[in-house]
Computed example of a mutant assay.
Amino acid sequence: MSNDERADLLDRFRRGDPTALAELYDRFAGRLYRVAFRMLGDHGLAEDAVQEVFLGVLKVRYRLGTLEDLSAYLFCCLRRAVGRLQVIRQRNKNLAHGSFQDAETGAPETQGGETIWSKWVLQALQQLPPEQQEVVLLKIEGELTFAEIAMALGISPNTAASRYRYALQKLRHYLSAQKE
């Protein structure tokens, strides 16, 4: 999508054109969902996160005129939505178990061949530090550039690229150890 197309889409959206929201959803929902699912490991919660992003965008549509990068903005919103859902899920787990300590989180499940990621790759991904894991998910599942990742996370593009490079090194090491 060119800059002119983005500007036109945002302008139509701000003016209340109902087809513009549908177009935004069609362009971004799949990528947002894939990242949310990898972060949350739950289909329902991932759907909730994406819905929260689009409801939030709808609420602030009049203020989107100064937006520099639509992709980065949407993934930044997704990151916040996922964080809120993780807190709620943890709180519910703690209440259900009568505990107020953090529980261990497992790797996201793969179900019915929906994903091409193998169990080993998912396990390896879970071994990464959260900031590297986030960059990998935004790059691969979100299909963002390093510049867009930088804007979404509030870091420099060089930091995003180095986190990605270090994550890939760690993933290679972990996977080669599993292979042996």
Rank of each mutant, 00 (worst) to 15 (best):
P129M: 06
L58S: 14
V53K: 05
R31V: 03
A147H: 08
Q111H: 10
S71I: 02
L78T: 02
G41K: 07
A20C: 04
G154Q: 02
Q126D: 09
S162L: 12
K119W: 07
L64T: 08
L32Y: 08
V135Q: 03
S156G: 15
E141Q: 12
E134Q: 10
E114I: 11
L64R: 03
L67Q: 11
E104K: 10
A29H: 07
C77G: 00
S71M: 00
R84T: 12
A7V: 13
A160Y: 04
T159D: 12
Y166S: 03
I116W: 14
L122T: 00
T105K: 03
D17R: 08
L70Y: 06
A150V: 02
Y166F: 10
F75C: 02
T159N: 09
K119E: 15
L168K: 14
E134F: 00
L144Y: 04
L58M: 12
G41A: 07
A22Y: 06
F100T: 11
G44A: 13
G98R: 06
R12W: 01
V57Q: 11
T66W: 06
R80N: 10
V136E: 06
L24N: 03
L137W: 11
T115K: 01
F37G: 00
E141Y: 03
E134G: 00
A36G: 12
G112M: 10
E143W: 01
A177M: 13
H173S: 15
I88L: 06
G65P: 05
M1N: 08
Q132F: 02
L95W: 05
G83R: 09
K119M: 07
K93I: 12
F54G: 06
F37C: 03
L70A: 07
L21G: 03
A46L: 11
Q90C: 01
